[in-house]
Structure formats: C-alpha cells, structure tokens
C-alpha cells in the first residue's frame, strides 16, 4: 500500500468517526440534561399535589397505606369575631389504618380545601372550635400510635370566603403519595 492510499484511508475513517461523534451528541446532550435535572424533577413531583384521584361521596380510598373516607363537610355559621364574609368549614374524615407506619407514610400530611378555581385553603388557626377528645387531626394522628385495623376520626377547620363555600372540596396529600392526591367529592356532585 502506498503512503498516499494509507493517507486516504485514514482520512476516510477520521471523517466517519467525526460523523459518528456528531450524531452521538443527539443522544448525549438530552441524556446529560436528563441526568442533571433528575433531582430537581424528583423534588418538584415530591413537593406538589399535581394529579387528583377523585373519590365519590361515601366511598373510601386507599391512600398512604390506609383507607380514607370523607364523612362530613359543613359550614359553622353564626360565629362572631370573624373577618367579614368568612365562614368556618369543618371537614371530618374516618380513616381505617392499614399500614401502621404513619410516621413514614403520612409524613408531610396536608389537608386542604380546593375550590372550582383551584384556590387552596390550609387549616386555619383563627377559629378554634371545641372538638371531642377522640377527634384528632392529620398531624396528631401520626403520633397517636394507631395500630393496623384501628379507625381514626380526623377533623380539620378552615376559614373560607362565603362565595367559595359552595364549590370547596377537601383534598388530602401525603409525601409518600405525591404528586398524586385525593380529591373528595360531595353527595351533590
């Protein structure tokens, strides 16, 4: 083989590899982006309630290892000392404990009211209504030491504007299930 032929051969293989490298960028760049953003995407999904699972009135749903059921949602009208045009709303749940490791499964438990425009109300500290001793809330339930098969009564109190009372629905989310969350429907839905 002459030097010239060898040279030509080398050049051809060099060109071939350069082309292969360029094509591989098509795969490598998206792959690098995916690896870089993996943690951020995971945090985004783990911190937000994105995908609702609707639960019909009177039915219970398996969530965070337990069976959740909305038993009541009602306004407490006629209280004094409240901001104008606001109504306290009570949401009552009955939860049948399945997996008793609540400190892990119910971590970051959030019960909120969502209205038809997607506005969200967290439980309020402005109104404190007396609740029976056996009724807890989401956070106290985590530390209640409930065992598998127990039934817990939970109640959260909210303060919502009067115009929103018709369309609010309770939603439940826990860190172990996010980005999915439960959205309870009422009898009239």
């Amino acid at each position: 083989m002459t030097a010239e032929a060898l040279d030509r051969n080398n050049r051809a293989s060099e060109r071939k590899w350069r082309r292969r490298s360029l094509w591989s960028l098509l795969v490598l760049i998206p792959l690098a982006l995916a690896v870089e953003s993996y943690d951020s995407v995971k945090a985004l999904l783990g911190n937000n309630d994105l995908f609702p699972r609707r639960v019909a009135w009177g039915e219970s749903a398996r969530f965070g290892g337990s069976d959740w059921k909305l038993t009541d949602l009602r306004g407490a009208f006629g209280m004094s000392n409240l901001p104008p045009d606001s109504v306290p709303v009570l949401a009552d749940f009955q939860v049948k404990i399945g997996d008793p490791d609540l400190q892990k499964l119910w971590l970051g438990c959030k019960i909120v009211l969502v209205d038809k425009d997607g506005r969200r109300w967290s439980p309020t500290s402005i109104v404190s209504l007396k609740t029976p001793d056996n009724v807890g809330n989401c956070i106290s339930a985590i530390f209640s030491g409930a065992k598998s098969g127990d039934t817990l009564d939970l109640r959260e109190t909210f303060l919502v504007p009067k115009e929103a009372t018709k369309s609010v629905r309770p939603s439940v989310s826990v860190a172990s299930e996010r980005p999915r969350f439960l959205l309870f429907q009422l009898e009239k839905d």
């Binding site: 901001p83 606001s86 506005r119 969200r120 109300w121 967290s122 309020t124 500290s125 402005i126 303060l159 919502v160 504007p161 115009e163 929103a164």
Partner: peptide, 9 residues
C-alpha cells in the same frame, strides 16, 4: 401573619 385566599387581613 397567615393569609387565606379571598380573606384580606
């Protein structure tokens, strides 16, 4: 202060 939608404070 805790503020809720629709309830100015």
């Amino acid at each position: 202060v805790a503020v809720d939608p629709g309830l100015p404070r």
